[in-house]
Amino acid sequence: MDKLNVNKLGRHIQKLRRDREISLSQLAQGAGIAKSNLSRIEQGNGNPTVDTIWRLAIQLKVPFSTLILPLSGSIEESEIEVRLIDHGTDNPPIDVYWMTCAPHSKREAEAHSPGTTETVTVISGQLEVGVLDEIKLLSAGETHTFNADQPHFYQTGENWATVLMTIIYAKEQGQK
């Protein structure tokens, strides 16, 4: 992530944290990261992983897209690139992402917020995806939906995989 996006992300996380009256220590502890690391992220000096951003979103009780919405471009790690396509604001919140995965990559994702489901459609290549007891090998044009509120993973084979991912969060109670 470039410096401009790291600064935007840090300021945005800090604002969301303060709006919710959560201390730096509380958010760091809940997200399972060191307080000093969270402080660096908020100051625009860190380089958080996708998993760290997910954990922060869960603790702040917001969709992942809410944290990355102010960023321009995509979020890249060594083996994956994720780009937000759309961020629904209805109830339930729905996010749509375009993801590319390098050959021979494996990404283990932590559980998302309770009640979250994920639908993955392979655009090109092949991808193994799902929760540990229900892993599917998908080829171009195939789709798999699973409960993403438990650990799950993505794994490519010999070639790049391009994926359309839709995440549907749990419906917020008391809202239409």
Score class of each variant (00 low, 15 high):
residue 121 T to V: 08
residue 53 I to G: 01
residue 88 G to I: 02
residue 20 R to D: 07
residue 46 G to N: 04
residue 59 Q to P: 03
residue 96 V to R: 15
residue 126 Q to S: 11
residue 144 H to A: 10
residue 134 E to Q: 15
residue 78 S to W: 00
residue 37 N to V: 04
residue 17 R to M: 05
residue 150 Q to F: 08
residue 133 D to F: 05
residue 58 I to S: 12
residue 81 E to N: 10
residue 42 E to N: 13
residue 112 H to M: 11
residue 98 W to I: 00
residue 132 L to Q: 14
residue 141 G to E: 07
residue 81 E to V: 13
residue 86 D to C: 06
residue 152 H to E: 05
residue 162 T to I: 06
residue 77 E to Q: 14
residue 110 E to S: 14
residue 34 A to Q: 12
residue 68 I to G: 06
residue 139 S to D: 09
residue 79 E to L: 03
residue 60 L to C: 06
residue 101 C to I: 12
residue 7 N to R: 10
residue 88 G to S: 02
residue 165 M to H: 10
residue 134 E to S: 15
residue 74 S to E: 13
residue 98 W to D: 13
residue 122 V to W: 00
residue 25 S to C: 06
residue 152 H to T: 04
residue 74 S to Y: 04
residue 40 R to Q: 15
residue 83 R to H: 13
residue 45 N to E: 13
residue 146 F to S: 05
residue 161 A to H: 01
residue 131 V to P: 00
residue 79 E to Q: 08
residue 21 E to A: 14
residue 50 V to G: 02
residue 89 T to R: 08
residue 75 I to P: 01
residue 137 L to E: 12
residue 119 T to K: 04
residue 128 E to R: 12
residue 89 T to I: 07
residue 41 I to H: 05
residue 45 N to H: 11
residue 89 T to W: 06
residue 20 R to T: 02
residue 104 H to S: 11
residue 54 W to F: 02
residue 21 E to F: 13
residue 16 L to H: 01
residue 126 Q to G: 09
residue 70 P to S: 11
residue 146 F to G: 05
residue 92 P to C: 08
residue 32 G to F: 04
residue 90 D to I: 01
residue 122 V to K: 00
residue 101 C to Q: 13
residue 175 Q to D: 10
residue 94 I to C: 10
